[in-house]
Amino acid sequence: MSAIDMLDLFSGGLSFLFTVLILSYLIGDNPLFRIAVYVFVGAASGYVAAVVFWQVLYPLLVLPTLSAIQSASLAQGLYVLMPWLGLILILMKVSSRLSGLARIAMAFLVGAGAAVTLVGALTGTLIPQFNATIDIFGGAVGKGGFELVELLFSGGVVLLGVISTLAYFHFGAHPKADGSMRRLAPVEILAWVGRIFIGITLGVVFAGVYATALTALIERISSLINFIASLFGMF
């Protein structure tokens, strides 16, 4: 029995154990379930810390710093100086007295992140999705017969779904004669239709989540069976 096999056996045993511990939650909340969860959190966070160091800080900060020191390059030094400064500032968050200084680095992160997400949303989602909605009947060009009707109908439904969903999220209201605040009648109708489309979409998502969860449960039960089978096969 090789070390890998021993390692696989040990890993399979851990997997079996933690799976059972977690599935014990079907009976109810119990200490075993909590033990598994706490150990999982600790192991995951420790692993993440190691990953961050070896796959982020080491290649992007430590090695360039060593390289800059070795080469005595001013440009490289300046390049790595700012991250070190930001690192120090962020580490200030640990101190309650100096945590305010961390805002500087956080401001940099937020500003850069805002710019990235802003442009991404604009160029990656808004414009392409608007273009796709505008060109929703473009596929019907050159088509005829039932296919044309199907494309036109499908395109109309999608268009209605988009508009009605956006109308559902439109909360501008106008006062009515009785003082109540209501949306305009067309918007109100579209919003009602939008509720249906959103319900359908969430139903699809729900089914997808269920499918994912079901697959995960199947995989876990399969792993349990396989581990038991492997034990019996081994012995």
């Binding site: 851990l14 997997s15 977690i22 999982f40 192991a43 995960a216």
Partner: peptide, 10 residues
């Protein structure tokens, strides 16, 4: 495979 994945998947 021994801790993270089983717990999360379960």
């Amino acid at each position: 495979s021994g801790i993270i994945l089983p717990v999360e998947a379960a």
